[in-house]
Amino acid sequence: MRQELNLSGGTAVLTRANPLSKFAAVFLVTLVLALSIDWVSASVALACELLLFPLAGLTLTLLWQRGWPLILAAAVGGWSTSILAADSGRTLIDVGIWTMSEGSLETGAGFLLRGLAIALPAVLLMSCTDPTDLADALAQKARLPHRFVLGTLAAMRLVGLMAEEWQTIGMARRARGVGSRGSVGQRIKATLGQSFGLLVQAIRRASRLAVTMEARGFGGGERTWARESTFSALDVWVVAGGALISGLAVTAAVSAGTWNMVWLGQ
């Protein structure tokens, strides 16, 4: 279960960039793509992102294995958009509340591609960003309060453990006669009980972890950092890369005439 949650890219180039610059680049791309629902800007960005995957140590096989829920979600988003978006052009389907027209289908397809083009850079970002490095950057460079940043980082380390504990509690409850198989109602009830069990363990563990941290002098004002968070020339390239992808996507869409600001109506 731990591995499923871990998308580590190992020693790829992008792992060496500062997490803040990677975040900046991803935010830029996300914002620009969010501004328009059109298949051109989304496709251009998507193509660029796929080209970047090797730099983050990801392969297409790996992406397919881990990323299919994202693709499914994007497809569902595309579907709901195409039946609910304002209709224009020839009507393709009209069954009661469902209507799908050429216009809404195009919006839906653009939406699907846009969803993927927004989701992928985040996958890319997280696969080449170590949580510890991110915390160091947030506390040292972004100057967020270190108690909150490091407290959260320490808690995040327990995520794999919690995931394993979730599975264990499920089995332990089956051994008490609580079935997790059955009707939807039974399963919801079983999940709620299991969640409560996990919460108790989470709070117990977190309380003990807090004692451990305080006993190591954590929580005071001054502290030094064993690992220095730094910016390098690579970070300039990362931000420039984000700007380039955004710029290409907008230019392509505007020149193809598909650029379509979300607030200006379809």
């Binding site: 003990r208 190591r216 954590f218 064993a226």
Partner: peptide, 23 residues
């Protein structure tokens, strides 16, 4: 819960950092 950070070196360094020991 006796381990705080996810890499061995960082974890050992944690207490010393909090006591503001030079890097």
């Amino acid at each position: 819960t006796q381990v705080v950070l996810s890499r061995v070196g960082d974890d050992v360094a944690f207490g010393a950092e909090n006591l503001a020991v030079p890097r």
